[in-house]
């Protein structure tokens, strides 16, 4: 008897080293053009202001009038691979006017390339901004969990490529699968739970600041202003 299958992913951010291998592997697997991404790794740096710093190091800083000002914060670098969450209740499917977006029985959210009219509505509706218009083919595309590989019994390209095995792919309905074990044993989170789309990509060790799109974004994109209207 074939077991019930619901594909899902666990991204163990304690293992992630921000190497972008998943991002490049995906580009290779799907011939994703430049300027659009099916998966990408967001990287941030965060730390406390000196007055909040947990440590105080007596720096002999030649630039500081008061040396105690140049104390060091505890800082960390955080990574977040961001991909389609293959939601249980995908808003992109709900709003597609021609029903080109659909969810398979095993939970993978797909786009029918022969039906999609490229109206961009799903792109506008997706709270994770994972959909894009392929500038070469003019198709709306997104991560499809490498459905051709999954059907052939292989893990998605990003999972296979991850040098630290931070990404784990498997059947969420199977209690003995590694994803289920991780979800039941570790403290997992999803992105934007408030959106009630019930994402099926779980993160272990997710930090609120890396998950928050609004932290530091204006500074980061200041040089891209010209691309806007």
């Amino acid at each position: 008897m074939e077991k019930e299958v619901r594909w899902g992913m666990v991204v163990d951010l304690r293992r992630c080293v921000g190497c972008h291998a998943c991002q490049v592997a995906c580009k290779a697997e799907h011939e994703v053009p430049l300027g659009v991404w099916r998966i990408w790794v967001k990287v941030i740096q965060k730390g406390y202001y000196p007055e909040m710093a947990a440590v105080s190091l007596p720096w002999d800083c030649p630039y500081c009038e008061r040396p105690e000002e140049a104390r060091y914060p505890r800082m960390q670098t955080l990574f977040l691979p961001w991909l389609c969450n293959h939601c249980e209740r995908p808003i992109c499917n709900t709003v597609c006017p021609v029903g080109a977006a659909y969810k398979r029985k095993d939970g993978i959210v797909l786009i029918d390339p022969h039906r999609c009219i490229g109206c961009n509505y799903c792109r506008a509706a997706c709270p994770y901004n994972v959909r894009f218009a392929n500038p070469i083919t003019g198709m709306i595309q997104k991560c499809d969990f490498c459905v051709h590989r999954v059907d052939a019994g292989l893990p998605p390209a990003c999972v296979e490529a991850c040098p630290t095995n931070a990404m784990v792919f498997g059947n969420l309905r199977d209690p003995s699968s590694k994803v289920s074990q991780l979800i039941s044993k570790e403290k997992v989170q999803v992105l934007k739970q408030i959106m009630a789309t019930f994402p099926q990509v779980y993160y272990i060790g997710l930090d609120k600041d890396v998950a928050d799109p609004l932290k530091g974004w204006e500074k980061h994109f200041y040089h891209k202003e010209y691309e806007r209207l």
Binding site: K3, G153, P155, N171, D174, S176, S177
Partner: peptide, 20 residues
């Protein structure tokens, strides 16, 4: 490896998969 083996490996999770 066929699909069944993959399922066994990826889903059946022998303890080996916990990378000890």
């Amino acid at each position: 490896m066929n699909r069944r083996e993959f399922l066994k490996l990826c889903l059946g999770a022998p303890p080996a998969l916990l990378f000890n």
